[in-house]
Amino acid sequence: MKGWAFLAAALLLAAPAAAEDLVSGLSQDTVQITSNYTGADIVVFGAIEHLEDTGVNDVVVVVRGPDANVTVHKKDNVLGIWIARDQAKLLAIPGYYYLSSTRPIDQIAAKFTLSRYEIGLQNIAAQNVVSHHDPEPFRQALIRHMQQGGLYGEQLGVEFSGPTLFHTHVPLPAEVPTGQYNVEVYLFRDGNVISAQSTPLYIDQAGLERRLYNFAHLSPLSYGLSTVLMAVLLGWLSSLIFRRAD
């Protein structure tokens, strides 16, 4: 826990005197998903330089996962049976989105500023939407589902230790998609973004999991045959063991 504060302090001291207003860093820039991965918690920390007393400073941290295409179905009752009928395809919407801020975001900046930077769950936009219906309820349903799964979140989690140093925790549940993430840190002053920083974060499968995943995708026939072989051997083996027990 002390590590982030130390690192942040080191960063602050190391930064040249007349640099930007914001420096930030991550407790780790790579998350390895291994066989006992049950989720991770990373710390985003930073410091504001040349802090002016005139004005209200706010920090917003946004972690975005790799974009995914999502189809949202809506069920309808047809002859007593609930059938998925209407649908909306949301193309290129983040597969993970976590926001942490010092204050509720609607108090930090105006709606048009927030939506320009896609800050806040309500301002997440798909690059493209394919639907014959009003897509808004579908988008809301997606946000709701992702929140329940822990993949979308919005917290007042940015804490200041002293006037310039800040940090926040970002939970990464077990189900996070793999790929390149972006950690964006925004410094708002009086409702305007005056500084922003973006740092990549990589989430990748490692070890045995990575090898199995590659095996399944690169040589699927051998992978399928291996699975069947394993099944046959285990079945046969148990038969042998239990025969002796009789």
Binding site: A68, N69, V70, T71, V72, H73, K74, K75, D76, N77, W82, A84, K89, G95, P137, F138, A141, L142, R144, H145, M146
Partner: peptide, 12 residues
């Protein structure tokens, strides 16, 4: 009647 009429499907 399902609790949530909407269901999501990733990918595609």
């Amino acid at each position: 009647r399902p609790d949530d009429l909407f269901s999501i499907q990733m990918g595609g």
